[in-house]
Simulated assay, not measured.
Amino acid sequence: MSRLELIDEDIRNIPEYVPGKSIEDTARKYGLDPSSIIKLGSNENALGPSRKAVQAIVDNADKVHLYPSADAGELVDALSMYLDIPASNICATGPGMDGLLDNLMRLIIQEGDEVIVPIPTFSYYEIAARANGASVKYVERKESFRVNTEAIQKAVSSRTKVIFLCSPNNPSGDLVPEPDIRMLLESFPGLVFVDEAYVEFAEHSVTNLVMEYDNLIVGRTFSKIFGLAGLRLGYGIMPSWLKKEYMKTATPFNVSLLALKAGVASISDKAHIEKSIAMVKEGRKYLQERIPFKVYDSMANFVLVDVSPRSASDVCETLLKKGVIVRDCRSFRGAGNSLIRVTVGTREQNVRVVEAFRST
């Protein structure tokens, strides 16, 4: 028996998560000065974190020998005020929203259960579900990546536990219309998970529906609008009955002390939030109008570019040599070979990425 056989075969067959390229790896591979590289491949906030969040980290650095609160109550209370949602419906979690997904799948999934994932979309839904014994039904999206709710309903079986929706969707940037979400919530007896990682840059959220439907979970993150990707902080908004069960299996102290303090400070910095949203809306329009390929409408802090008849790998390689990191979307199941995701950056970064595209 080989050591590898100690790992369940279903786990061995799960595709690896493919992250965006780092500045350090790009600099080494292409012999570039790291300071000359712009990273627009991971949907990070180009403005960085709130100064209040940074100060909160500094102020609490000498307390890291102490455990944080078990339920991140201080952060949950701040989120309750931010969202105007009762604290009894909110769970803070780490690492990022991925921690929320992992724990939910551990809580809900039994061997042989199914989940439904409209593709292309964020790949971690599949990874978290399969790692806990579920099989995945993939439903292709309609033209312009609109979710096909009719096809989702047809894919539901007696073993379906969760339907995953990403709104705005990663990598396409489109919102799932609220009537479509309501239709699924009302026709499906299982749970509907709506990933709103990018919703602060959009026009509409469905967090209010959690108080109306007892089978809706909304996932959020501090990695995007709040610029805290390196602290790996997320949260879920869910029915109170589910939060009670969720907390039984949540990893103890899963939100670190520094993440908790930085999260609370970030929520309080309304000016930084507004500045981040304004930067994204202005930059998104700039990229949509000036990148010399088809660019899809987006409600997120990125745009999706179709470089056909060229390949994404070819164009991305050319951009990397120029010190511009964007995201080749071939690793997104069902995305094809010609899509590239570009994070909205600062004005200077956006100008540079447009110039790089024009010279490919």
Score class of each variant (00 low, 15 high):
29 K>L: 15
187 S>G: 10
159 R>Q: 13
254 N>W: 00
239 P>F: 09
193 F>T: 06
68 P>Y: 06
271 A>L: 11
216 L>F: 08
109 I>D: 01
25 D>F: 14
312 A>H: 14
244 K>P: 07
22 S>C: 12
46 A>F: 01
239 P>Q: 07
228 L>S: 05
254 N>M: 01
186 E>W: 12
186 E>S: 07
207 T>V: 15
301 N>Y: 00
307 V>L: 07
60 N>R: 03
286 Y>I: 09
162 V>I: 01
13 N>K: 12
98 D>L: 10
33 D>I: 10
103 N>C: 05
122 F>C: 02
157 S>V: 11
229 A>Y: 04
252 P>Q: 02
199 V>W: 06
19 P>L: 13
308 S>G: 15
319 L>H: 03
299 M>C: 09
195 D>C: 07
108 I>W: 00
242 L>A: 13
49 P>E: 09
128 A>F: 06
302 F>S: 01
279 M>N: 05
12 R>G: 09
65 H>V: 15
140 E>C: 13
225 I>P: 00
285 K>H: 13
303 V>G: 00
67 Y>T: 00
257 L>D: 01
296 Y>A: 08
227 G>H: 01
265 A>I: 00
356 A>K: 05
134 A>L: 01
318 T>K: 15
17 Y>Q: 09
257 L>T: 02
293 F>Y: 14
67 Y>W: 04
260 L>F: 02
195 D>H: 10
125 Y>C: 12
236 G>Y: 11
216 L>M: 15
259 A>W: 01
347 R>H: 13
271 A>T: 12
12 R>T: 07
114 E>A: 04
175 L>T: 03
328 D>A: 04
89 N>K: 11
95 P>R: 07
329 C>R: 00
351 V>Q: 13
337 N>Y: 14
291 I>P: 07
210 V>A: 09
114 E>K: 04
